[in-house]
Simulated scan of single mutants.
Amino acid sequence: MAEQLRIRRITAYCLLGVCFVTALLIVLNLHTPVRTIAVLLFTGTAPGWALISYVNVRHLSVTWIGAVGLSLSVGLVVSQALVLTHAWHPEAAVLGLVFATAALLAHHVLRSRPRSVP
């Protein structure tokens, strides 16, 4: 169990890095292939992983399958909200999603830290 928590913590750190890179590339308005890859990697994994990390799933593969499914679902809901409100600002929506996801990932990192034994 401790090993699984360590892997999840490392994954959360990596996804926080993806959040940071994605936000940076969007804010700096850099149009490179790296931005495309970062946004696709972020939208396809991070939001769902940040949500599913609160569920006690025993197998890491099931966690990732759920994370991708949830990420796609979150992306669809956000996109549908943009269309229905006639406020098509995908960059702002991705930035909002980045900050919400980063907050959840930071909480996951803090709560999964190993406890020090006195």
Score class of each variant (00 low, 15 high):
H59C: 01
P90H: 01
V18Y: 04
A50T: 04
L40M: 06
I10A: 15
M1H: 13
V109S: 05
Y54A: 10
I10K: 11
A2M: 08
L104N: 12
S112I: 00
G96A: 14
L40Y: 02
Y13V: 15
G66L: 11
R115H: 08
W49F: 15
A38N: 06
V94H: 01
T63A: 10
G48A: 00
A38L: 03
F42S: 06
H108G: 13
P114T: 07
I26K: 01
G75M: 03
A46D: 00
V77H: 04
H89Q: 12
I52S: 04
S71D: 06
A50K: 04
I26M: 09
A93S: 12
H31K: 15
L95M: 11
R111D: 03
A100E: 05
S116W: 13
L5E: 08
H86P: 07
F20M: 12
L97W: 08
V57N: 01
G75S: 11
C14I: 15
L15Y: 04
L82H: 00
T32L: 01
Q80W: 13
V55H: 14
L95F: 05
P114A: 13
V83P: 00
T101F: 10
G44P: 08
L41W: 11
T63N: 05
L105G: 05
V94I: 15
A106E: 12
S79H: 10
A12V: 08
W88L: 10
I52M: 14
V68F: 08
L16A: 14
I10C: 12
W88E: 04
I10D: 09
L5G: 09
G69A: 12
G96N: 09
H89L: 11
S73I: 10
G48Y: 04
Y54M: 05
A67I: 06
